[in-house]
Each structure stands twice: as C-alpha cells, then as structure tokens.
Design a protein around this nucleic acid. Sequence first.
RNA 1: GUGGGCGUAGCUCAAUAGGUAGAGCACUUGACUGUGGCUCAAGUGGUUGGGGGUUCAAGUCCCCUCGUCCACCCCA
Length: 421
Amino acid sequence: MLYQRPKGTHDILPTEVPRWQHAEAAFRELCRLYNYEEIRTPVFEQTELFVRAVGENTDIVAKEMYTSEDRGGRSLTLRAEGTAPVVRAYLESNLQGQDPQRLTKLFYIAPVFRYDRPQAGRYRQHHQAGAEAIGSSQPEVDAEIIQLSMAFFARLGLDEVTLLLNSVGCPTCRPESAQALQDFVKPHLDEMCADCQRRYETNPLRLLDCKNERCRQIMQPAPSMLDMLCIECAEHFDKLQQTLDLLDIAYTVDPHIVRGLDYYTKTAFEFVAPGLGAQDSIGGGGRYDPLIEQCGGPPTPAVGVGIGLERVLIAQESAGVVQEEAPREGVFVVTISEAAWPEGLKLLAQLRAAGIPAEIDYRQRSIRAQLRYADAEGYRWAAILGEDELQQQTVTLRDMVSGEQESIPQSELIARLSAEL
RNA sequence: GUGGGCGUAGCUCAAUAGGUAGAGCACUUGACUGUGGCUCAAGUGGUUGGGGGUUCAAGUCCCCUCGUCCACCCCA
C-alpha cells in the first residue's frame, strides 16, 4: 500500500457517516432548545493561546500538541482542546457586548488534535461536541450544561451513562489544599512512585488519584479535596447538587475527578459509559472562572463541557444501539437495448431535475445484472426502458418490494413517482 | 513515553513438525436469448502489511519497520 492514513487518524466512511450525522444533528437540536449558538473557530491557533490557557505543566501542552511554525516564523498549534479557542473568539469579537453580566452560550462540533499513543477510543484526531456558557457564576448554569449533556446521551440511546461530580476549588482555596497535601505527603515522599514525586512539585492535587497500590495506601488518610474547599466553593458545590436533585439528574460525588487542564475551578465533572475499556470517559467539563481574565478579558466566570464523539459512537455500539437504515427512496433506470440507452439518459436527467434520486448502469449490462444491482443497492423502483417501451412511449415501472410492475406513459412517470415518494 | 498481543482475498477466517496459499460470504458470468431476491455451476480476486536475514525451501523461524489492539499514563 502506497499511502495510509496518519497514525491515530481515521476515515469516516460512507457507511458510517449516517451515524455521525445523527449524533451531530441531535447535539445541534439540543443546543437550539437550550439556546446555545454555534461558533466555528480555526483548526489552528497561536501556540501561546493553548500554553497560557491549558497550562504549561499539563500533559496536553507538555507533550501532546501538534505544533509547527508557518513560513512567517509564527508558532501555530492544531486545536488541542475546545474551550480556549472559543474564549479567544469571544473576547476578540466582543461577544459579551456592552453588558458585562451577559450570559453568552456557544456550542461547537470540531476536530481536536493530540499527539498521544492511539488505542481504542483514543485518537490523534478526534471530534468533540462542546458547549460553553460564559458570563455567569451561578451553579444553576453548571447544572444546565450537565443537563444538556445528559439529554444528548439519552437521545443517542445511552442510558447507562454515569455522572461523576467533584469540586476542585478555586484560586483562593486550591493553593491551601495543595499545600495541605504537600505537607501530608512530605514525610512519605521517598516511598511513593516516580510519577507522584513529580506530581508533588507540579500538581499536588493529582497525588490523590494515583493508581499505584503503595501510593493509594499512603494517600488513604489524606484530607479530601472536598473537605478543604473555601466557603464560597463549598456553597457553590452544595447549590449545584441541590439543583441536580431538583432536576432529577443522578450523580456520584467522586473526589478523584481532577481535570487535566489548569483552568478548571469549582465544578468538575465527567461522564462515564460502559463498554469502552480504559477510555471510558465519553465527556467531561467544568467551571473555568479564571480563564477569560487570564486571556486578557475582564473577570468573567464560565462553565463548559466537551464530549468525545468517537467515544460516544463506540458506547452506542457496545450498548447495542442500532440506527435504522433509511431505505433508499430512488429509481434505478434500466435500459435494455442500444436504442433505449439515450432515452434512459434523458429520463435519468428528468427524474433528477424533478427532485427524484435516480441512477443508471453506465456499464449497460444485462437486465438481470441491472435489476440485481438495483435490488442490492436498495432502490425502491426500477424504471425499465426497452424496445417495447420506446415504441409505445411508455416505461415499465417495477416496484422492487412487491415485484409488481405496470406500464405507464413516459410523460406520467415523474408525477407518479413524486406521489409515491 | 513504557510494556504486551495481533497483521493471510473486499469481509470473516483456515493452512499439521518450515514443503510452493485455501474455504465461506461478497463480486462477475451463465442456467433464465426482456426481469432482482431462492437454487446450481463456472470464473475473477493474494507481491501472506513492508524490508532484510537463516534455509535447498519461509505465511510459518530471527531482526528491523509500519499499522492496529490491550494495559500503564493521560484524556474526549
């Protein structure tokens, strides 16, 4: 094979496209209902945007970005995550307008690129559907984002999705929590794994969810994130849970949910679905109150979600969700003789011009082969043109389902099919 | 980035201890000279992922490489 797709990418083939369109349409429709407007940003951004927004020490920035220089020496990076570009566009085009309190609600469906070792449900180019609500600090908005996500999963037939909920604190209480964890860990540091020794310096909160057995033992009596929240964060978390209860949205509080992007504050959540192996998170998000200011805007609270479409489709498959195949509602024009061929081409064009999907066999094979092909391809009707039909100015219209056929004047074919379709 | 499994026809898979690659489905044609689905028959189709090595002989053994899958890590 001369060329193959780049590692970790995949083609979405014609047979799979309907499933994608179905998922995308469901997301769009829900965003319409929830009043989120679509935004489309470039596939690449200035590298600095992701570095500043996501955080220098995150895995995404440290080793997973597709970065290169253009001919003008500018460092550019393929969309490494969905939120930062939206925030950039929001600020650059002043979407908040004159009202600093305005709630701006945006959604996107876009490819995301991360250089990582591929495995099932993990690709170097994948697609995310995301929603961002910018301008409100109210926990009810967190709940709305979650509700929108859950509604999306429900529409796609995924009813085994679990919502994991946590609060990661804010710039006020997080340094204190981090300090408390460092103090707690310090005496045991040399017993812990290499990763944790690194985390101790770079991201102490991550110490809480190491999978190493020894580290877990050590961390067992450590103070939980949730116990160390400041009053404001604790109240926000309480209110969010009350709202979710009110809306009948089930959740599990899981203090191990720590988002891998530095900009998250307060609410962090993740959606987990069965059947995906180790990559069981089909979506996640949270509140990112400091990000807009960090990107040069006024202090503006915000919350958002990102959903991995490949993973959603895999979850659908393993949940046995089958999408009904839409029958092909078209006409296959069958020509039998040399003389019928040009007439067939004219008929084909007339049908298409009248809005009726139509196809013909350019190989001009036997009528048997043509009908077999029309059947295999699922055409509902066959319009047969041969010597007899040419003489009588008729066409034989065959119903491929019932096998019945009738002779009708060529001039009536389109009206007849339009009525049927 | 670390460790492991797997790459044979379009698809799903065979090939005994190295011995010259096969089946089902699909596709094409015919039985049916103007009629699909069922049946029967014939046929097309492979540089066994790629490269190198060992051997008289490699799908099979060894090395490299690419891809894929699984776990770690991380995340969607």
